[in-house]
């Protein structure tokens, strides 16, 4: 797998597994051993998709909110 930030390449297991906030998604968070960036990883493809920064949710919206009125606060 290749880090999207620093291009470090190694088998997926070398990227420290952090957690998967949403159990029903194949996207998990792993950390690059070289640049320490948190990465969104598709575990099905074994590929790093993007860096994850505070406030970002690579899993998409929370379950359930699709059927409700739009939620936002200024």
């Amino acid at each position: 797998m290749k880090c999207t930030e620093c291009a470090f390449e190694a088998p997926i297991g070398k990227f420290r597994y952090l957690y998967n906030a949403r159990i029903d998604s194949s996207i998990s968070m792993r950390q690059c051993p070289q640049c320490e960036q948190w990465l969104a990883v598709d575990e099905l493809l074994g590929e790093a998709q993007d860096a994850v920064h505070p406030g970002e949710a690579p899993w998409g919206k929370s379950a359930g909110i699709e059927g409700l009125a739009g939620d936002s606060q200024g």
């Binding site: 597994y17 998967n20 949403r22 159990i23 029903d24 998990s28 379950a63």
Partner: peptide, 23 residues
Amino acid sequence: PNGRRLGDALYDGGISPGPGLDK
């Protein structure tokens, strides 16, 4: 066998369903 890995948060409540699993 519920599909969690070592490192994943466990379910949050005492009898709350797993997050996103109550469909």
